[in-house]
Simulated scan of single mutants.
Amino acid sequence: MRMVVTMFLLGLLYVAFVGVLIAMGVQAVVVLVLAGGLLLVQYFFSDKIALFAMHGREVSPQEAPELHGLVDRLSALAGSPKPRVAIADSDVPNAFATGRNQKKSVVCVTTGLMRRLDPLELEGVVAHEMSHVAHRDVAVMTIASFLGIVAGLMTRFALYSGLGRDRGNNNGPPIGLIIMLVSMVVYAISFLLTRALSRYRELSADRAGALLTQRPSALASALVKVTGEMSRIPTRDLREAQPFNAFFFAPALSGGRAGASVATLFATHPPLERRLEQLNLIAAQLGRGV
């Protein structure tokens, strides 16, 4: 419900933004086409882009029999097509899943994650990632980010081209400046809404993964272990991985405990305490303790 409300607000913001542009007589077709083209590339090639950026490679059942067996078991439990399986050679303990649908998806875990987690914890993480695929989160986040890209491009377009500079009389309002300011405000709001949507999808994937495995305690243990191990990874390595925080099971670089502070508004993931609280409630519902 939170994700639906957030998407509705993003759509409402988009309609209002386009309405303002049309009212000002702005021909935004070029910007819309450019933004749409970028998002189509992101949507259709997200799996290849993510694997290339994270130096991940697909592995066969012979190369990683235990990992494939785990994915086979979870796919059977979920009644879903088996995603492609990949491993990234990185000491950063993390995992991600991407792909526009279940037939074109890939689940990737790092060597650092496989070294640090026991089989049940690893199962919980992979179940979490497969839930992202089942929920079509790549499509959801691609659509959600469209408005931000449009607003960002419009801001640059207005800034560098002097959009609307010659419109109206000399005593009239500077339309180009107004469009740039409106675009900046829209970008800021859409950025915050998209981050909120990302946090909601992480909570949803936690819940779905815990219910699929029936072991919320294993997922909670993995969260605690991964978060703790991040502090031991060189900062340089974490900063290289940080651009992919939205894909990851846990943020590579979060800046410490966010709690209810302003930092939470900019986070792609909920605070660890919030995720553990939800898992504890699920465990209580299942008659188990985390």
Rank of each mutant, 00 (worst) to 15 (best):
M3P: 04
F8H: 07
F8I: 08
L12A: 14
A16T: 12
F17L: 03
G19D: 12
L21G: 01
M24V: 04
V26E: 06
A28I: 08
L38I: 03
L40I: 11
S46F: 07
S46M: 12
K48Q: 15
I49Y: 14
R57T: 14
R57D: 13
H68K: 07
D72S: 10
R73F: 03
L74F: 11
A78F: 04
S80P: 00
K82V: 02
P83C: 10
R84Q: 13
I87H: 05
S90V: 00
P93V: 01
A97T: 08
G99M: 06
R100C: 13
R100Y: 15
Q102P: 03
K104A: 15
V107D: 09
V107Y: 04
M114K: 11
R116K: 12
L120V: 08
E121R: 06
L122R: 02
E123C: 07
G124Y: 07
G124W: 06
V138S: 07
A139C: 01
M141H: 12
M141V: 05
G148Q: 01
M154D: 05
M154I: 04
T155C: 04
R156K: 12
R156I: 10
A158Y: 04
L159I: 08
Y160V: 13
D166F: 10
G168V: 06
G172N: 11
P174D: 14
I175F: 11
I179Y: 02
L181A: 15
V182Y: 04
V185Q: 00
V186R: 04
F191C: 05
L192C: 07
L197G: 00
A205Y: 05
A205T: 07
A208Q: 08
A210Q: 00
A210Y: 03
P216Q: 10
A220S: 14
V226W: 05
G228C: 07
G228F: 09
R232F: 14
T235K: 15
A241L: 12
Q242A: 14
P243T: 09
F248L: 13
P251I: 03
A252H: 03
S254V: 03
G256W: 10
A258P: 01
S261T: 15
V262Y: 15
T268L: 08
P270T: 06
L272D: 08
N280R: 14
R288Y: 07
R288K: 15
G289K: 13
